[in-house]
Design a protein around this nucleic acid. Structure first.
Ligand SMILES: [Mn+2]
Ligand SMILES: [Mn+2]
Ligand SMILES: [Zn+2]
Ligand SMILES: [Zn+2]
Lengths: 148, 148
DNA sequence: CCACAAATGCAACAGTGTTGCATTTGTGGC
DNA sequence: GCCACAAATGCAACACTGTTGCATTTGTGG
């Protein structure tokens, strides 16, 4: 059986990748696998702070993320605001086939029952990376509260 | 004849866009039109510093770039390092009804011959704000350079 | 030429990411 | 289990990119 199959624990993945298994790395990798969208450093810090365990140093978190990228367990990309976002590598994207609505009030992300629009035809020589259909507005809850 | 034709001077473009014609804006717009690639703030500062005229304040440059983007005379995108890069746009409004491709290598923005997809249907109570269709990848030039 | 909104310059600040270095910890070999 | 040592961590300081507040200057319509 593949040493990095879908049933591997974070610790297994780290061992298979040849880097030390530390509590911080395990927590970060868990968070990445549980995330439904790529997370930036700040979001990850908040999420790790909320899980009860001791907080991770800011710099250590940066270094952990870099180490995960270096060994291929995570992917790093820049968002439209210029902030780096990280996602677990090798995970099937369960949110790949529908689009999302982001509430600009509460920050919530909602899955919509609509497929992403097909990528457009590109000029010769261009290579397609990601296509992102970003729908923003206010969710039902926040809209209701606003009307009060 | 269109008031913002290809032979318009930077000053003409600024006037047509409805914002004040200032020496700084003229210089920045000239630099953008003369550039062969999208420029970041730092590169633009260096270039403006080298042209003999008085240096432009750092913050003023940021504000000039933002004002050019706001009135449609420039386009803004993020490069792979998370830095904003600016390029000259054609005439204002010209970019409303087609979508854009952003090169994640050089930060270039390219117009595609495709309409933006329609906004999706939202669940009850949700209110639509903006919809953004973001197509990213590597442009022909950067793809070619990468293969070397 | 004037009035006034808009733009500028400067100082201080904020967000995001990095570097240096002393200390702690995970791991392979015994 | 224990040790040695490289790797990882925590902390302070720093760097880069971009923003905000506010007093002063300037472009523009009348
Ligand atoms: Mn989803
Ligand atoms: Mn366009
Ligand atoms: Zn909401
Ligand atoms: Zn490119």
């Amino acid at each position: 059986m593949d040493s990095a199959s879908i049933s591997s624990t974070p610790a297994d993945l780290l061992r298979a990748a040849g880097i030390k298994v530390t509590p911080g790395r395990v927590r970060v990798l868990q968070a990445l696998h549980g995330a439904r969208q790529p997370l930036c450093h700040g979001e990850m810090e908040a999420q790790l702070g909320a899980d009860g365990a001791a907080a991770l140093d800011r710099v250590t978190l940066y270094r952990i993320l870099d180490s995960l990228v270096a060994c291929g367990l995570a992917l790093k990309a820049v968002d439209t605001r210029g902030v780096f976002r990280f996602s677990a590598a090798g995970t099937p994207r369960q949110h790949a086939n529908h689009i999302h609505f982001r509430c600009t009030d509460c920050g919530g992300v909602f899955c919509l029952k609509a497929e992403p629009p097909p990528p457009p035809k590109l000029p010769r020589g261009f290579r397609l990376g990601e296509v992102e259909f970003d729908v923003r507005g206010t969710c039902a809850g926040c809209s209701a509260r606003e009307r009060e």
